[in-house]
């Protein structure tokens, strides 16, 4: 065990155990933020998230778990690719997002994104595969976002891009069991 591991905060420990990232290694060069395509929409930039996570106290954690930025990461892998310390800021954000989700700390601006992820997973849990029509219907129900893109569905059907009936796999009971186990499992 290194010195920095001995002194690490509970947050730093959770981050290290789930993502492998040692927060103390970030030297705040800002390269992750410079290349992040979503940084311009974020209330905290990737390097600011790394800095607050290093602080790791209650005030920092509160700020981190309630920020919108966690939800705006699109998973483009740029930050991890370019970090000169070989850290993965997006993996840190994954850990924090999961914590925020479990504690139901979802900022209003991120609710549509969460609604989409949940609708996506609901279709997978039901039939083993993502199904676009049920996904969009469920997303619209959950997000209240009824008006956008109403014209796209009919166009996609006309272009034969969407199957009318979703395919359900034979192993769907197995998939449901996997979902149930993960739901119960240890989380950050």
């Amino acid at each position: 065990m290194t010195m920095s591991e001995k002194r690490e905060s509970p947050l730093a420990k959770a981050v290290r155990e789930t993502s492998g990232v040692v927060l103390a290694e970030c030297y705040q060069c800002g390269k992750c933020t410079a290349g992040c395509p979503m940084a311009r929409y974020m209330d905290l930039t990737p390097n600011q998230i790394m800095r607050l996570a290093q602080a790791g106290d209650d005030a920092a954690l509160e700020r981190l778990l309630s920020c919108e930025a966690l939800w705006y990461c699109v998973g483009c892998l740029t930050c991890a690719q370019r970090c000169p310390r070989q850290l993965d800021p997006a993996a840190v954000m994954d850990v924090l997002r999961e914590m925020a989700h479990r504690r139901r700390k979802i900022p209003a601006a991120a609710r549509k994104i969460l609604a989409f992820h949940k609708a996506f997973l609901a279709t997978v849990e039901w039939g083993g595969r993502m199904a676009e029509i049920p996904l969009v219907l469920r997303y619209k129900m959950n997000s209240g976002d009824f008006l956008s893109d109403v014209f796209l569905g009919p166009v996609m059907l006309a272009k034969r891009k969407l199957p009318l009936l979703p395919h359900r796999i034979r192993g769907r009971a197995e998939i449901r069991r996997i979902f149930a186990t993960c739901r119960k499992g240890t989380r950050p």
């Binding site: 699109v74 994954d94 997002r97 997973l121 997978v124 083993g128 993502m130 796999i169 192993g171 989380r187």
Partner: peptide, 17 residues
């Protein structure tokens, strides 16, 4: 009988899934 890989939705919400 392949299943969905979970895409960014599973990745965003549940690291085990």
């Amino acid at each position: 009988d392949w299943n969905c890989c979970g895409a960014s939705a599973a990745h965003s919400l549940d690291h085990s899934l």
